[in-house]
Simulated assay, not measured.
Amino acid sequence: MTDPDEATCSLIKAVDLVGERWTFLVLREALAGAYRFSEFRARLGIASDVLAARLAKLVDSGLMTRRTYREPGQRPRDGYCLTEAGRQFNVVLCALQQWGDEHLPRTTSTVVYRAADGRPVRLRFVDDGGVVVPAGDVRPGPG
């Protein structure tokens, strides 16, 4: 680290934690309902050792937790469930997806819907009064 602020920068810490392709994809599948190792493996086509490492990192970081389950006639196995922090990561995934849909024209668009009524939703900056703020009018600063 060359910048002393890097040690405390939440953006750098977040990117260090989840900034790898497979980690994003594992979280995407977990948000879509996957929780078994075999489900992640089948949906993603990921090598078992890579998947095991990513799941261990997500558990260690508090984005997922292990829960034992047992199918009838089978031995107990670990399932991987999202924690509240993991469920909140949906905002990050949706923001990246929305950005990609708008700025990477060769990608396939995906619409995000409100679960209660099926209405499409979009991510936006909103001030504490509920007013949408254009992205160009937002600046980072010390909190």
Rank of each mutant, 00 (worst) to 15 (best):
T2P: 02
D3G: 06
D3M: 06
P4C: 08
D5G: 03
E6S: 12
E6V: 13
A7V: 12
T8S: 09
C9T: 15
C9R: 08
S10Y: 13
S10D: 01
S10L: 15
S10T: 15
K13H: 11
V15D: 04
V15G: 04
D16L: 08
D16M: 13
V18T: 10
G19S: 06
G19E: 04
E20Y: 11
R21W: 07
F24W: 06
L25S: 05
R28P: 01
E29C: 02
E29D: 12
A30Q: 00
A32G: 02
G33M: 00
A34P: 00
A34D: 00
R36E: 12
F37H: 02
S38R: 07
F40Q: 00
R43S: 01
R43N: 09
L44Q: 04
L44F: 08
L44I: 04
G45A: 10
I46N: 13
S48G: 08
V50H: 08
A52H: 05
R54N: 12
R54S: 09
L55D: 00
L55V: 03
K57T: 08
V59K: 05
V59W: 03
V59R: 02
D60C: 03
D60R: 11
S61I: 14
S61Y: 14
G62F: 10
L63W: 15
T65S: 02
R66H: 02
T68M: 10
Y69Q: 03
R70A: 11
R70C: 13
R70P: 06
E71Q: 07
Q74K: 12
R75Q: 07
R75H: 11
P76R: 07
P76N: 03
D78S: 12
G79Q: 04
Y80T: 02
C81I: 09
C81F: 11
C81D: 12
G86A: 11
Q88I: 04
Q88T: 06
N90I: 03
V91M: 07
V92F: 12
V92G: 06
V92M: 09
A95Q: 09
W99H: 14
G100K: 07
D101W: 00
E102N: 05
E102V: 11
H103N: 12
L104Y: 06
T107S: 13
S109R: 15
Y113V: 02
R114Y: 03
A115Y: 11
A116L: 07
D117G: 04
D117H: 10
D117Q: 06
G118W: 10
R119K: 14
P120T: 14
P120F: 15
V121I: 15
V121H: 06
F125E: 01
D127W: 02
D128K: 14
D128C: 04
G129R: 14
P134R: 15
P134K: 09
A135H: 09
A135S: 11
A135I: 08
D137C: 10
V138F: 15
R139N: 15
